[in-house]
Nucleic acid binder design. Sequence first.
DNA 1: TAACGTGTTATCCATGTGGACAAGAAGGGG
DNA 2: CCCCTTCTTGTCCACATGGATAACACGTTA
Lengths: 211, 211
Amino acid sequence: MTRLDPAARREQILAATLRLVARDGFARVTLRDVAAEVGVVHGLIRHYFPTREQLVAAAFDAAVLAELEDDEEVAERVEPVEALADWLTSTPREHYLVWIDAWSEAPRNPELHAALTRHHRDCERRLSRIIERLDQAGLGTSADPASDARMLTALADGIAVQHHAIGIVSREDADRVVFTAAEERLGIVPGTLERSRPTAVRGQWATNTGA
Amino acid sequence: MTRLDPAARREQILAATLRLVARDGFARVTLRDVAAEVGVVHGLIRHYFPTREQLVAAAFDAAVLAELEDDEEVAERVEPVEALADWLTSTPREHYLVWIDAWSEAPRNPELHAALTRHHRDCERRLSRIIERLDQAGLGTSADPASDARMLTALADGIAVQHHAIGIVSREDADRVVFTAAEERLGIVPGTLERSRPTAVRGQWATNTGA
DNA sequence: TAACGTGTTATCCATGTGGACAAGAAGGGG
DNA sequence: CCCCTTCTTGTCCACATGGATAACACGTTA
């Protein structure tokens, strides 16, 4: 492969790793798989990431970062109802498959566990903020936004398992479950979230074409 | 190791496999690990299970079976509130770690996916039945027991992730979240489930001492 | 007690893995 | 123009893995 800018190559390797993790899981991704996905020799991976452990850790960090990169300021400007509907539904399938795999790896991988903890706290914090704004706007009520955020986060994760991993519920049913629960919990008039369902789907990880 | 009754040895191997899956995950459990856990040579494992795939599939089937073996007739005789509190909280840590790992493996393992689907449906069905009895007894109300069961199952799974995998919430907080949500959803008077919290913890998988 | 079935062991093998290393190639600065 | 950094390749190695196989040992039955 032609010589590439180090930063671009690095991102290319990370994206390839994430695609393979989503497909095969952290435990089964090999350096040779990643190299083949990128189109280089497996020795080159080592040139950028000294060990396999550091590679997957860096890849997961990148995934967490990518998940948060959609500007929080933007989310702050949009209507709270819309922000809530978006928060509850917009995580793409590939990302959730990585989260689910990360859950299973976390108990035996301290770095991954730490990153996952940070990500989870951040998700709850963002949702909590949306709930506060919803309450302030008089569109809903919450005595304890943090508690409500925790409960809705857990519900969204659980229903994502049923949808993405087990495939026992459709996308529509999954959305309805979390929408209904959120409306009930936060005193939002029923059907509001359904009507604010976002149409666009967030991006996946880049393909082979590096930055 | 002394010669053993085939059925007993088989169960011993399955239990050892499940313990290792809970610790290391499906992908990382090797035949040699299982053999060492049992205290035999790795060739013997093959004598009982022709391939590694069949071993882990059989182990997961055994786990699903063990989860359901607590007699449904017994659950039918106990008070519905007690049954609900038990359902929402009684899955032991080791079992949940296996479920979480199974979620991450399901998309690429058809047999495991099938077993997981059966197990999930059964869990929902049982909870649905409890909710029906609760409604009939006038202790709660549910317009759609199946929907409520689906939502509470998802919530319980999601909060189990937060508790067991990420460790971001304590056992007490986890129970409180699902109890509060269930009471709210089913119109149970607040605090009822907390007072019915089961004291006994269900068993883990047997240790080395075979049947 | 001798023969037989089978649980059990001890090795052997091909393969895939993470990592190490030296040589080649592409570009940038003197 | 040459040199020098470093991106990139090809190859090598020690090791672990799943699986195969033959010999061994223990219990049962005739």
